[in-house]
Design a protein around this nucleic acid. Structure first.
Lengths: 211, 211
DNA sequence: TTTATAAACAGAACACTGTTCACTATCTGA
DNA sequence: TCAGATAGTGAACAGTGTTCTGTTTATAAA
């Protein structure tokens, strides 16, 4: 049996990614396998590999879709928000909501490891950068006088904080936080960090000896 | 061949955990396997399973050792530090140093997922709690007048921030940050967060925390 | 219309993986 | 000396990702 030609190459990829996405909405990545994906879409395992190069690259593609989804949700959420601090807050809530609603996809998106020292594709890095950029843009709008480098660092710090908090609030395992909600942690984080961030004028690096 | 009796049950476990630890010092967890562990210690795969219950539980035990190591390093680092803010800074640096030096063990310690809905052992949770407690203690010493719940939340926020930053600074993959060092991010995070955290209510307890 | 070529798959085989279970040696206590 | 427990193995099993060979079909040229 060969050459069924029921789907074009693109259709087959979309079909496969949809199957992966649907699976990861309900079940963790560790329970997925190449052979299960193949069975889900009614093709042979080798066909899936033919289409994506390897199982790992298939996961990477699914990963990219999740990042796109998260980016779109974020962009929409802050579209009409003029106050940059409120926008940052909304951004963080979108992350938390996504991590809660699709823990497995969220988990895969940020924890997927490339097998060895393989260079991971540029389109993947650019997707991460695009997520960071959402924070950078809002920081630029705050009116605080900071260098570009400072804004860059601050955007990473905020992302890191939000990510860590989502890990505690929505990530399974031993890290699960019980006595504090994600919203509480996010609010305390942003309120304190931004409160101090807005007040200083000097670049941060000059203050390295203060503490 | 049976009953070699070269090692006691405890010795065998220590031997196995050492092999895992040594392996993870150089190679990522995904390259390890039950059969490799068995080969490393010169026993049959089934013997390792007999000893730990399953391969997953072996990883969990190795995990626990890493958490212990991190806790010990942290405790030592702040032993003679009276200034709680400086202690928090030192704590964060220990985390960063560990994540950089042993990325695979660090990675395993915090990203290891239990297979399904299996309840993960209490000794694992308590190890995480012990790590959090290091932050909580220092926060209690700052002199800032906060409720216990506030301190609890703040400790989680700080841990989350530190963890996220370590992910950016030392975690491989697409998250690797190039234009900012871990130290820069940690300092900006702690300085801003603590700066604002300390200031509320400060007028009532001014002298205690002035440097 | 016939023929060559390339594309689209499938199937079997390979080297792995973690786990189970029957089994055998060896040690220990009576 | 003789059970019984202990320590450990080896083979088998179901599953994994990947590779390679082969076959069917669509397409283009003659």
């Amino acid at each position: 049996m060969a050459r069924r030609n029921e789907h074009s190459k693109d259709e087959l990829q979309r079909l496969t990614l949809k199957a992966v996405k649907d699976f990861l909405t309900l079940y963790p990545p560790q329970e997925l396998s190449l052979r299960k994906v193949a069975k889900l879409i009614g093709y042979a395992p080798a066909t899936v590999i033919n289409s994506f190069g390897s199982y790992g690259e298939l996961l990477l593609a699914a990963n990219a879709e999740a990042l796109d989804e998260l980016h779109t949700l974020s962009a929409v959420a802050i579209r009409d928000e003029n106050n940059p601090q409120l926008a940052l807050r909304k951004l963080s809530r979108v992350y938390l909501a996504y991590a809660r609603k699709y823990p497995y996809r969220w988990h895969l998106a940020f924890e997927h490891r490339i097998p060895d020292q393989k260079v991971l594709p540029e389109w993947q890095k650019s997707r991460i950068d695009r997520l960071f950029a959402l924070f950078t843009e809002q920081l630029s709008r705050t009116g605080a006088q900071r260098t570009l480098q400072d804004i860059h660092i601050a955007s990473r710090v905020i992302w890191a904080g939000v990510h860590g908090i989502c890990l505690l609030a929505a990530g399974g395992g031993a890290l699960q936080e019980k006595h504090a909600t994600g919203e509480q942690m996010l609010d305390m984080f942003l309120k304190n960090f931004m409160g101090s961030y807005m007040k200083q004028e000097k670049t941060y690096s000059k203050l390295s000896t203060e503490i």
